[in-house]
Amino acid sequence: MMNENTIQINNPVLSVRNLSVAYDQNVAVKNVSVDFKKNAITAIMGPSGCGKSTLLRAFNRMHELYENIHTTGEIILNGTDIMKLPPIRVRRHMGMVFQRPNPFPTMSIYDNVIAGYKLNGIRLKHSEKDEIVERSLTDVALWDEVKDALFKKGTFLSGGQQQRLCIARALAFNPEVILLDEPTSALDPIATAKIEELLVELKKQYSIIMVTHNMSQAARISDFSLFMYLGEMVEYDKTKVMFTTPKDKRTEAYLTGKFG
């Protein structure tokens, strides 16, 4: 099943088998099979349009919101095939962070963090809420910056702070996997550096899968890298190995900047 350009992962947190995604007739992800390591950062990279975001969004079944997108294959989270579960339950186990920071504009910083509980109608005691908010914001190194403004609107924060708020919102639910879709592409270099630092810290508690088209970002913070090209998974390896001795010619061409 696995080809020679992939490495074996023991006890993966998330496994994907023969995953294909098609927009109407256009196949955007072709038969991808891959295992993701627990408590590690895995970077999915590749040129624009290679299907990396499409692959990521298949994991928490976001594609099912759109009628013209069809997904086939198996997605196994901690031993359960989540393709057989209702998507609403699946998504609560995976946090997602988007390209552009998108805090809920009608909610305060505090409510944004616990939005997952609020919107799902899960009742919490006051003390539990306070605890979740403080823990999540501390985890994303935002607590000291906003602790006196918790009841201001989240949209008043800077772009980088908003993105960290969105990560906190994803963490509040204690997800098993955090999916990030180019989380720093809309941010300035300083905010980007902060988020990268944060992700390295977060992998101690969470498993992180992130899409990036920034090769140096993948090299800086990821433990594993997955290279996609034209919807296919070309190569999957430890980041250090892939960046020094890529096995596939296409990977080498991409990494050396021959296309992108």
């Binding site: 976001m62 998504r91 609560r92 997602m96 988007f98 998108n102 809920f104 997952g116 919107l119 799902n120």
Partner: peptide, 14 residues
């Protein structure tokens, strides 16, 4: 923005 809707849906909100 569509991402706002997706953000909520990604949290498993019906």
């Amino acid at each position: 923005p569509n991402t706002l809707k997706e953000a909520a849906l990604a949290m498993g909100v019906p």
